[in-house]
Amino acid sequence: MTTLPLPAWGVRPKRVLPGFGLTMGVTLAFLGIVVLLPTVALVLKGAEIGPARFWAIATAPRTFAALKLTLLAATMATIFNALYGLLMAWVLVRYDFPGRRLLDALVDIPFALPTAVAGLTLSALFSANGWYGAVLEPMGLPVVFTIWGVAIAMSFTSIPFVIRTVQPVLEDLDPQYEQAARTLGAGPFTCFVRVVLPAILPALVVGTTLSLARCLGEFGAIVFIAGNLPMKTEIASLLAVIRLEEYDYNGAAVIALVLLLIALALLAVSGLLQALATRHRGRAP
């Protein structure tokens, strides 16, 4: 993997901004060493295994259960994040109230907190004798050691992605669009659905995708609350660690590859949705 900062052939094109060669070189070198090379290594490792064995490992009951749980919980968490994150961004942008800045700062806490701390805190709160658990368990809604616990931990660490991507777009949205819609006879709800939502949809898609990706990869916060019962509440990344500790490199690589494929598919879907949501930004005449 070598990266050449400048093309060694032909005439050097003149550029208005200086420093292209250097900055591009550093960028490519970094991306190559830190992102691309490990990914390629992982794919190569997976290729060594061979498709038949790969399939066998990936669909082994315990692996399959872990992948299924991870995907399901991540989807639950992301749906919640998309809705609640949008609501939260709306409240932070559209209303002025005492404590708004404090609330705004609180949003970043899941990012700032070490995930292990978040996991410990959540499991303490939701355990049978914790503040929340003491209320929920008697109602027949156990959280700790269930998929709900996994989803809650995922949601906790990833919701800022939605809020922080939607918030600036909502802030920049010119109120004239909504005012125009109102004077054309649209009610507040119609106005939101037909004018505001299309404008913030690209940002919402990006935020939701990032949030889902983070949910799939979350580890620290979940392992404390999930209980990690094989076939029940064991997440995929934890299983990969277990395989590695058992010196089962192939098993770990398969799980990692599946997660990687899901992440790539997510990026592709997100790009597609964004293109759809921004297709109106045509060229000016």
């Binding site: 010119d174 004239q176 669009y177 005012q179 125009a180 819609a181 109102r182 004077t183 054309l184 006879g185 649209a186 009610g187 037909r194 004018v195 299309p198 404008a199 949501a277 109106h280 930004r281």
Partner: peptide, 22 residues
């Protein structure tokens, strides 16, 4: 009456056309 009930179709200086609609 609200703006919605008055239905004046205010025309803004910078038009405020809905960018996502043809």
């Amino acid at each position: 009456k609200t703006a919605q009930e008055r239905r004046t179709g205010f025309v803004f200086q910078h038009y405020a056309l809905f960018p996502h609609l043809k």
